[in-house]
Computed example of a mutant assay.
Amino acid sequence: MSSSWEGEYGTVEEITSTYVVIQLWDWRRMVLPLSYFIEKPFQNWTSESSSIIGAVTFNVDYSTDVPTIRSKLNEIVAANPRWDRRVVSLQVTDPTAETIQLRAHVSAATSAAAWDLRCEVPEELIEFVNTRMPGCLPRRRQQVVHREVVAPATDVEARQSEKMGLAASARARKLARSEHRDRRCRLRGSPDNPVFCLQGRQSISRSKPATSPISASRPLRQTKWRAPAIKETKV
């Protein structure tokens, strides 16, 4: 009887009234008391038949052609004498964020033959994927986002930028003052208020309204200011 105990696989070699001797797969012996089989569960692989199904799992990329690998699995198992020609299949079992997991099932007449199949089948499948489908090996994908990196300005560049900004501000203020002065000149040079500006100098010209009794063509009297005369007195 082939069974599994405490994570070990072996065959029952001797049964006594107090203990059981189990020959493990590497020819070691495990001795278990009879109470172990009464208190704890164990797996019996040969209760009705020694045939057993072995499972093999491996991960591949999402771009993998699964039907091609399935056909290769059938070819590999058919050429292996340990296969009992009963069960062979390939299924996608666990898709993850980066890969998909393939699970292959093969049957054998004994547990020892099933173990050998579980070792030989993935070896040939991995070799097939590596040589014929290298792009289907597991790989990690990343998306690169291109961003413009602005280098930090040096002290000299910072000072130059500051000077340029100050100069631009000064020019803007000067232009604003010039526009304001021109606007005032245009307003003062209107017919209602004939005051005009020429080259920064202001010349005032006043005229009497049309209803004034004094003719508008009469020239204005120009008077000059004279200093008062000083009288000399004799003492």
Rank of each mutant, 00 (worst) to 15 (best):
G54R: 13
A108W: 05
K174C: 02
E75G: 06
L34K: 11
Q222M: 03
L32W: 00
D65S: 13
S49Q: 09
L73Y: 01
E162Y: 07
R103A: 10
R221D: 03
P41R: 05
C136P: 04
P191R: 10
V66L: 04
S203Y: 14
G165P: 09
K72L: 06
S49Y: 04
W115P: 01
F196S: 15
N80L: 13
E157F: 04
R103K: 13
S107F: 05
L24V: 04
S203M: 07
V106E: 11
D116E: 06
T46H: 11
V129C: 13
R171N: 10
Q142L: 08
P134S: 04
R140Y: 14
S17F: 03
S89L: 04
E232I: 06
T57M: 08
P81A: 14
G7D: 08
T223W: 00
S4G: 06
S3H: 13
S35C: 04
V66T: 06
R186D: 05
E14N: 11
F37I: 05
A79C: 00
E8V: 01
Q143K: 14
I53F: 05
V66K: 07
A210E: 10
Q222E: 01
C185H: 09
I214T: 11
N193G: 06
W27I: 02
R188Y: 08
R28Y: 01
S217P: 02
V149T: 04
A104H: 02
R181I: 11
R147G: 02
K231R: 00
I53G: 01
S212R: 04
A151L: 15
M164Q: 14
L90V: 13
E124L: 15
S107T: 04
T68S: 14
S111K: 06
H180T: 11
W225I: 03
R82E: 13
E14R: 15
I126N: 11
V106T: 14
A176Q: 14
N130Y: 12
A151W: 12
R28D: 12
S205R: 07
N74V: 00
Q23C: 05
D116N: 05
V156I: 06
A168V: 00
A108M: 07
I126H: 14
V149G: 03
A104W: 01
T131N: 09
V92S: 08
S50P: 02
K163G: 01
N44Q: 13
V88P: 02
V87A: 00
T57S: 15
I15A: 12
Y9L: 15
A97C: 03
S169F: 02
R132Q: 15
Q91H: 11
Y62N: 00
R70M: 10
S217F: 14
V21C: 04
M133F: 05
L166A: 13
S205G: 06
T99C: 12
Q160F: 09
K40Q: 09
F196Q: 08
V77D: 06
P152K: 12
V56P: 04
I15W: 10
T46P: 02
W115M: 09
L117P: 00
A216P: 00
C119V: 14
